Simulated assay, not measured.
Amino acid sequence: MPATFDLIWLTVLAYGTGHITSFFILGYLGSIALSSMSLDRNYGIYNAFLASVLFSAMGFLVYYEVLPLVNIIMPAVKPTLLSIFISSLLLGGSAFIVNQIVSKLFFSLTNLNEKLLAIAMTDPLTGISNRRSFFTNLEIEIARQHRSQSPYPIAFLLFDLDLFKSINDNYGHEIGDLVLVEFAGVLKTSLRKQDFPARWGGEEFLVLLPNTELDGAIVVAEKIRTTFQSLSFAIKGKQLQCSTSVGISLLKSPDENPETVINKADEYLYIAKERGRNQVVSDKNRF
């Protein structure tokens, strides 16, 4: 508790400048500044109590002539018991009040910063992470992979909603947004806690699967593809069904370039589109 030592130092300094002067000038400013150093609202009670005790103790020692009157600024004036009592209460109270205000402002700013960070890392439409957040988590996962005694593969699943432009053109962007939100919901319910989905851009979504071999990644991709295909959207008395194409690639070593691996998933996604869409392509079936 560094403020404790600062209060002791302030008390000594206050003694050297005279009881009255220190209480009404140095005392108030010092206790307020020191209480502001602590952002813990509970610690503010301790700090205020300590300020009152130290300053009243110094006043009593001067009053009962245990310590001589000293004032390096102006002629020394002996304090009265009433001035000691009132000044100590005012000092402690001011220290406590300012601590509560400062700590409340600090935690409000902290919460605001956390909310702003969440906004910056989240896709506003679908509520899942965005590209920036994906790369942040990818770096963390690659570092974890590098520290592992037996490096594990990281699978990338790149999804693209089929014929999405025609959905926007024929039904409007509101329906297109609804389809994007529903697909993001499928991702959330189909993945493990450690998996990381993100909106890659437009109608593309990228999913990171830590510690997942190719066969396991294919199972997950097929689950998401079939679940999304089974959804039906009621629009103007008609039923709209959508599908998605998927490209899968694996980052097998921390020495590999993740962007190169993601580009490979993009190549496989393109192959899936060329083959008629609504399918999964990986190293196993690229030819």
Rank of each mutant, 00 (worst) to 15 (best):
D160P: 15
L7Y: 09
H19N: 14
I97W: 09
F5W: 13
G237F: 04
L39C: 02
P68Y: 05
G92S: 12
K236C: 11
F107C: 12
V66W: 10
I32W: 06
S83G: 06
I97C: 10
F156T: 03
R144Q: 05
L138Q: 01
R225W: 03
E65K: 14
V179F: 00
A272Y: 05
G247T: 04
L187K: 01
D283Y: 12
D6H: 14
P197L: 03
K273D: 02
E267M: 10
L34A: 04
I175V: 14
N99E: 05
V62W: 09
I101W: 11
A198W: 00
S166Y: 10
A51Q: 13
Q241W: 00
A120E: 08
Y152F: 11
G59Y: 07
S232F: 00
V281Q: 06
A118T: 12
S22F: 11
E139I: 06
I154L: 04
T260D: 07
R41V: 05
E204F: 10
Y28N: 12
R199S: 04
A217Y: 02
L214M: 15
W9L: 15
L67W: 15
Y152H: 08
L54C: 10
E204G: 02
I73M: 12
F60V: 09
P254R: 07
N263R: 13
V219G: 01
M1W: 03
E204A: 04
S103A: 14
Q145C: 03
Q145P: 07
E204M: 07
L180I: 00
K188N: 09
V179K: 04
I8Y: 08
E204K: 09
P75L: 08
Q239R: 13
L90W: 09
F183H: 04
V246M: 08
T126G: 06
F23P: 01
S253N: 10
P79Q: 14
T122Q: 06
Y63L: 14
V280I: 07
A221R: 00
R286V: 08
N257D: 15
M37N: 13
R192K: 08
K264G: 03
D283V: 09
P79V: 12
I45D: 05
F135Y: 14
C242Q: 02
